[in-house]
């Protein structure tokens, strides 16, 4: 089912949580709402679910205006960050709950068959008689997903679905959710503050800041062409410099960075650690190594430029470098934004 948000606004007391957000999610699409805390992403998700009502604007499910349909009748599957499994019911009872309370009557055999099918889908066969308190966090989240899917929702909504899990479980569940989505093809919207999770999982990433959409696009789009300094900064580690443009060229140290289209004046230059290199001489920013951090994939150098700015850069694992070395930071790629 296609979802469309049309100039949606939400204010809590005096806090404008969501300002005039318009967004379209195609049928069968897997979309991530990505943003820092307080960016309004969860509020948007809860409005789509019907757990909050919009102060202004409309939410459409297909062609139907769903803005005022209560959550009970909206037909969404909602997965909570902390699972919200009913602690006094077994896994089976949890999954069957939606079918039992549904206005659509189902006989017991049909419910049992569906529960078995869902347990298989979420790979929890044989755990049906356990209580939520007796299974692991990752298993609980899968039960929560099965419970949400049991009522054949038009849309699947997930609020920080992997936020409370440790890193390894998280990665597995992410891949697994992607597979389930492929298999079921259900329109899915999820909220996360973890850029890696959003880029890993989603067909399309919607980046929010202060209640507004600042950029949306495929993971490739937003990674290769961050629309603003905020997006650049939020998507990964960056080094930020201010520099002056003159004649379409910015100068950092003794390196020149093309800044086409910028009029003369101050700009912000963002450099990712992987966009930088280290050399004993050449064109770049002269710096002194303060510390070297070793990681499985390479070495990260924490350097200080001659003018006292801290810079982080990633170099190949075999690079020979140690603290107090002097050298040049080579700029391989840079992004220039108008000064804020």
């Amino acid at each position: 089912m296609k979802i469309r948000l049309d100039n949606v606004v939400k204010t809590f007391e005096t806090f404008r949580a969501v300002r005039d957000v318009s967004l379209e999610i195609e049928s069968g699409e897997l979309v991530a709402l990505l943003g820092p805390s307080g960016s309004g992403k969860t509020t948007i998700l809860r409005m789509v679910a019907g757990l909050e009502y919009a102060d202004a604007g409309h939410i459409y499910f297909g062609t139907e205006d769903a803005t005022d349909i209560p959550v009970r009748d909206r037909g969404v599957g909602f997965v909570f960050q902390h699972y919200a499994l009913f602690p006094h019911m077994t896994v089976t009872e949890n999954i069957a709950f939606g079918m039992k309370v549904s206005k659509v009557r189902r006989d017991k055999a049909a419910i049992d068959a569906r529960v078995t099918e869902l347990l298989r889908l979420v790979q929890l066969d044989g755990l049906g008689e356990r209580f939520p308190g007796q299974i692991s966090g990752g298993q609980r989240q899968r039960v929560a997903l099965a419970r949400a899917l049991a009522v054949d929702p038009k849309v699947l909504l997930l609020d920080e679905p992997f936020g409370a899990l440790d890193a390894n479980v998280r990665r597995d569940l992410r891949r697994w959710l992607r597979e389930i989505h492929q298999e079921l093809g259900i329109t899915t919207l999820f909220v996360t503050h973890d850029q890696e999770e959003a880029l890993d999982l989603a067909d399309r990433v919607v980046i929010l800041d202060k209640g507004q959409i600042v950029q949306q696009g495929t993971p490739e789009d937003v990674c290769r062409n961050p629309a603003s300094a905020f997006v650049m900064n939020f998507l990964g580690d960056t080094n930020r410099f201010t520099a002056a443009v003159s004649g379409g060229v910015a100068r950092l140290g003794n390196a020149t960075i093309p800044a086409p289209g910028f009029s003369d004046g101050p700009v912000e230059i963002f450099l990712r650690p992987s966009d930088l290199g280290w050399n004993v001489s050449g064109e770049g920013i002269p710096a002194t190594v303060a510390r070297v951090i070793d990681r499985p994939a390479g070495r990260r150098i924490l350097a200080v430029t001659a003018s006292g700015e801290a810079v982080e850069l990633d170099v190949a694992p075999e690079t020979q470098v140690s603290a107090q070395d002097k050298g040049i930071i080579i700029i391989e790629r840079a992004r220039v934004y108008a000064a804020a």
């Binding site: 009970r72 909602f78 419970r147 009522v151």
Partner: peptide, 24 residues
Amino acid sequence: DLEEAATSLGASGWRTFFSVTLPN
């Protein structure tokens, strides 16, 4: 959360109270 989950699954207010809130 529990009440919201029950409601999103289609339970009425009474149903939510008796099968989710009250037992807890």
